[in-house]
Write a protein that binds this DNA or RNA. Structure first.
Length: 910
DNA sequence: AAGAATGAAAC
DNA sequence: GTTTCATTCTT
């Protein structure tokens, strides 16, 4: 099959609800198509995927997974992970809506979204083809890019939707405006190749240098991901652990890893790594059962980022050496760090489950590790026992799954994990929102013994987790850090975690600083934090949080402004050694930055700074500026967002006025969510013309009239203030006129009218309106037909006749009523509108509220309109309407029509 | 969760 | 022809 062959299907139970399950779709980002593909999956998706997978695997059992994998038609990738379906690309109208909704809202604050949508539809209808064209083109571009990225993509997947584990992905996807392609992953080779190769041409969106931008962004993402991933990664890679360890062998990575990921164990690991290290990186990893890694070792040729991504995603992480070579740049280092972090995790966990048959070497490594960590080992058993038993089994079934499951279990054990959970949790929460189904499934998963992730997390978190953590810590201390008394000190974070785990963990479970749904782990952490910090400082929290979330990382650098505690300090100056941490790996990779040892964070921070300063991370910076809130929001948990928001938003927003805020928010959010990638895309998106409401107003007004016949005012139009320049208006006017002419061959009268209008009116913007309106009318007639057809039709089909029905009066159709409402609202809010619309001069349409209803008001209709012409127009309208309306029956319509005509006439006459 | 709109695609 | 689903976000 195309896709997948597999198909299909239905996973039976999986589906839960009878309807079709919704699939989770990741949003696809154009960038991805290009180069990004490679990483894309890994990064964001990874998280999601992994998460999903685990649950899916365990709980649902392979079946679903399979399905999922199959699902992707596009990619084919088998990887289960990939399965998530990409979200459909937006069509022109949606793009338009997205871009203008805020405007609409601004104008009509009270209006609910639906209303806004209606207005948008009206606007859209009114929009000239040329104008629409841009959106259409963009949509097309977007679609094309999307299709490239996802070759076999089907809009409507037949039935299967993978429902998979719903939550994570979905939520994430949703949040992020432009998400990554679902699975490109392995899909591969093809996909990768193509995109890269083409890279340039394909997307316009693309951004600047793929290398640079993409690289950076990817890098960042990767980094973030890695951080975030800890948990995830743990899950995903577990298998890899051993491998990683080997690879990791490289000190640099480890160090980095430690830094990035965290806290404690690193040193020990590092040592281990050193010992082991030399084993061949590539082979082993390959050997590992990892799913992903089919690929041959990546050479430098690939971008570092890519490598990273792969590593991270696969967990295999072989490439260390290469990476080094390739990536000497700061970015690279960063990437390494990220990777390292993952590796670290893996390693930490590496207790090595038997499952991996991987290579001897790997085993050996594992053995070493174990020996050292032996102390920890006890944990392993525990953790494993809890959830992992199932995981193991699963592993047997599928290598990938096993890996994931294992990781999960291991993760729980690791101290690092604690932090990560936060992220995940939030995601989960969000996901939940999405669908009931999902939720159900999720619940199932939880329930089911097999479900690795959730179960593990929750349960373990409660008991085993803590224990494991403790053990880990101890082990670490003994092993590498050894003495490190520091461990306890270490970072606040680590410390907190430690403390929390032992003491509070059990007790506290429920407290949450922020109510959201956190899982116990989080809670613990938080509690711990609280205790230590006592909440007093939000900042502290931030820090901690930051590391966790991907975005958070980003923030750090930017954030610097804020008083960061140790982290920040450390970052800038490597000199100040982080107190404790032995872990610190001095970053070999970057001696420059950190000469001696620093805290992980500091190192990272330094890196970021460097990058930023270099300009490499501009986008990042931009994001930061915007406010993390968005970004945070996108990926992270709500609660994080909340705080973030406060800090940022408020400051920024200032609150000129509520409206603004909202608006800004919405806008910001979009971009932020994704980060740089999105930005690029956004740029494009933003480049799309945003028409001023005024413009629409005019158009709409006229349109409205026609449609509704109600003379009334312009529904939406009102915003006087808008910036529409006179020139624009003129242009509009001209357009209209031209259109009108073309379309309507109508009688000369029209011409006349036009002529008349043009000359005088053009200059005065306001004045134009009357003429325009007049013109519009005629034009509208046609348009009306179209427009009407559009929405109404649909409605008719779908919903029902209701709206068709006219009101008691009979005079107004329901639709009109709505409009009327709108009008009123508008009027209420904005009296000015009317003025804008009509000058005294006359608008027949005139909007004075009362007048609107009563046509007579407008006394001054331009002379040029002859009755005949008007009549004609009216007739046309009627015709159109009649056609449309025919179905309807109605008198109502007729009535409507009637009024219109008269109105016009009356105006004319008068 | 539903629903408002349009459009594209799949049935 | 009809149904899905993409986006947004209030109700």
């Amino acid at each position: 099959m195309k896709g997948g062959g597999r198909g299909k299907e239905p996973p039976v139970e999986g589906e839960v609800s009878g309807k079709r399950p919704k699939r989770k779709c990741l949003q696809w980002h154009p960038l991805l198509s290009k180069k990004a593909l490679d990483f894309s999956e890994e990064e964001e998706e990874e998280d999601e995927e992994e998460l999903d997978k685990e649950p899916a695997l365990c709980s649902e059992s392979g079946g679903q997974e399979v399905d999922c994998g199959a699902m992707d038609e596009e990619g084919e990738g088998e990887e289960d992970s990939s399965e998530q379906r990409a979200r459909r690309p937006m069509n022109a109208f949606l793009l338009f809506c997205k871009r203008h909704r805020s405007l609409v809202r601004q104008e009509h604050p009270r209006l609910d979204n639906r209303g806004a949508t209606k207005i948008l539809a009206d606007w859209w209808a009114v929009l000239e083809p040329k104008e629409k064209q841009k959106y259409t083109d963009m949509a097309k571009e977007y679609k094309d890019a999307f299709m490239k990225a996802n070759p076999g993509y089907k809009w409507c997947p037949t039935a299967n939707k993978p429902v998979k584990s719903p939550s994570h992905q979905v939520s994430n996807a949703r949040k992020k405006v432009w998400a990554f392609p679902p699975n490109p992953t392995k899909d591969s080779a093809v996909a990768k190749k193509i995109p890269k190769m083409d890279n340039a041409p394909q997307l316009n969106f693309a951004m600047a240098d793929p290398t640079k931008m993409g690289g950076l962004s990817m890098l960042l993402l990767a980094g973030e991901h890695a951080l975030t991933a800890r948990e995830i990664s743990s899950s995903s890679s577990q298998t890899g652990v051993t491998d990683v360890a080997k690879h990791a062998g490289k000190s640099a990575l480890f160090q980095l890893a430690e830094i990035s990921s965290t806290p404690a164990q690193p040193t020990a690991e590092r040592k281990h790594s050193e010992e082991r290290n030399p084993s061949a990186s590539g082979q082993e990893y390959t050997g590992a059962s990892q799913p992903g890694p089919p690929e041959p070792p990546k050479s430098c040729a690939k971008s570092p980022l890519f490598q990273l991504a792969e590593i991270s995603s696969s967990s295999s992480g072989s490439p260390m050496p290469e990476g080094k070579q390739c990536g000497q740049s700061a970015l690279f280092q960063l990437a390494e760090m990220c990777l390292a972090s993952e590796a670290e995790k893996m390693e930490a966990r590496s207790f090595q489950p038997p499952s991996q048959s991987s290579l001897d070497s790997s085993q050996d490594d594992a053995a070493h590790t174990e020996s050292k960590q032996s102390k920890d080992s006890p944990d392993l058993p525990l953790s494993t026992s809890s959830s992992s038993s199932s995981s193991f089994s699963s592993s047997s079934s599928s290598s990938s799954s096993s890996s994931t499951s294992t990781s999960a279990s291991s993760a729980s054990s690791t101290p690092t994990d604690t932090s990560p959970p936060l992220l995940n949790q939030p995601k989960n929460v969000t996901n939940k929102k999405k669908k009931k189904k999902e939720g159900k499934e999720t619940s199932k998963a939880d329930k089911s013994p097999s479900s690795p992730k959730k179960t593990c997390k929750k349960r373990q978190s409660s008991d085993s987790d803590l224990e494991s953590v403790i053990y880990t810590i101890e082990a670490v201390a003994k092993g590498a850090w050894g003495v490190e008394e520091g461990s306890p000190k270490k970072k606040a974070r680590s410390t907190t975690s430690e403390k929390s785990s032992p003491g509070d963990g059990p007790l506290s479970p429920k407290k949450k600083i922020k109510p959201k749904v956190r899982k116990p782990l989080k809670t613990k952490e938080e509690q711990a934090k609280e205790e230590q910090v006592q909440e007093s400082k939000p900042q502290v929290v931030e820090k901690e949080v930051a590391p966790l979330s991907p975005k958070a990382e980003v923030e750090e650098p930017a954030v610097k402004s804020e008083p960061q505690t140790s982290l920040e300090e450390g970052a800038p100056q490597c000199s100040s050694p982080a107190p404790v941490k032995s872990e610190e790996k001095e970053t070999e990779a970057k001696p420059e930055n950190c000469g001696s040892r620093k805290s992980e964070r500091s190192c990272k921070g330094a890196l970021y700074k460097t990058l930023v300063s270099e300009g490499m991370l501009t986008s990042l910076r931009a994001n930061v500026d915007r406010g993390k809130r968005g970004s945070v929001r996108g990926s992270v948990s709500d609660h994080e967002i909340s705080w973030t928001e406060e800090s940022w938003t408020f400051s920024q927003a200032v609150a000129s006025n509520p409206k603004k805020l909202k608006k800004s928010k919405s806008k910001d959010e979009i971009p932020q969510g994704l980060g740089k990638l999105e930005e690029e895309f956004e740029k494009k998106f933003n480049s799309l013309p945003q028409y001023s409401p005024v413009t629409f107003d005019k158009k709409s007004t006229s349109a409205t009239k026609k449609k509704k016949s109600t003379p009334a005012s312009p529904a939406e139009p009102p915003k006087p203030g808008k910036s529409s320049s006179s020139s624009q208006k003129k242009a509009l006017f001209h357009k209209i006129v031209s259109k009108y002419k073309h379309k309507k061959e109508k009688p000369n009268t029209l011409d006349k009218a036009i002529a008349g209008c043009d000359s005088p009116v053009l200059e005065m913007v306001p004045k134009v309106k009357p003429c325009a309106q007049g013109m519009v009318l005629s034009a509208e007639a046609q348009r009306a037909a179209e427009m009407l057809v559009g929405s109404q039709k649909r409605k008719a089909r779908k919903s029902k006749i209701t709206h068709l029905v006219r009101t008691a009066d009979g005079r107004v159709s329901p639709a009109e009523e709505d409009k009327a409402k709108e009008l009123t609202q508008d009027q209420d809010e904005k009296p000015l509108n009317q003025e804008t619309l009509c000058n005294e001069e006359g608008c027949y349409a005139a909007p004075r509220s009362e007048e609107a209803e009563r046509p007579d008001a407008s006394s001054s209709l331009p002379a040029f309109f002859s009755l005949a012409a008007l009549a004609e127009v009216a007739a046309m309208e009627n015709v159109h309407r009649g056609q449309r309306a025919v179905g309807m029956s109605s008198e109502g319509q007729v009535k409507e029509m009637a009024p219109q005509t008269p109105v016009l006439i009356s105006c004319a006459d008068q």
